[in-house]
Amino acid sequence: MNNIIPPLSSPIVEFRNLWKSFDKERIQVLRGASLRVSQGESVALVGASGSGKSSLLHLIAGLDEPDQGAVYVNGEPLGSGRRLTQRLRHQIGFVFQLHNLIPNLTLRENCMIPSVAAGVKKKTADARLLYLANATGITDRLDHRIQDLSGGERQRTALCRALMNSPQIILADEPTGSLDDLNRVRVFELLLELVRKEGITLIMATHDLELGRRCDRFLRVQRGVLFDETKEQQHLGQDDLRAI
């Protein structure tokens, strides 16, 4: 087992030898992580807090820069500036642990933010929102303000927002981390269903081993290095997984 993950087919996301540290290199978060992810594949990044999962997602989305290494999307360097903004508008959607919706805006307005950023026509955006709201079961809450929604509804709204511009890649950072057991499974299943239906690539950081093992690939993040344990985890029970 090593941290160079071989491609399954032509990769939509690829990162090579990513190194990242904080606090003037005193905290080394990633140590040469590499991975290739195919179109439509779902990948779970499982690891303890501080193992580097979120940092990895931030690097893939271009929100942060690696100390060393590179990220490629569709075979091209991720880029920066205008190119990166275009990627965030059209190719990459992000779901956070805390929904990170904008207070005082309605659910509809929150979902529309990526469309506003990308200058999508209102008619097109409205149709897309209606489709996603139906799929996530929040149609009747569209004009409610975020403060009036439950935790599950807020996270489903966050899913809608991430999917608004039909991205190729969804990066989900503990998307069910703040939800109760019932909502945790519902929201995850919804996320999985939507990305599979639309052929979207999902890279999800999670503590939740049970949900992680339902992804196509199961990668353990340990001390900034990735380990592909897809095959192993399929034979492990929940207690064994917790030990990872």
Binding site: L63, I113, A117, N165
Partner: peptide, 16 residues
């Protein structure tokens, strides 16, 4: 600050 970061993640450019 966090909200502005969210907007950036959702495709808002620095100019926007």
């Amino acid at each position: 600050i966090r909200e502005i970061a969210i907007l950036r993640v959702n495709g808002f450019s620095p100019a926007q």
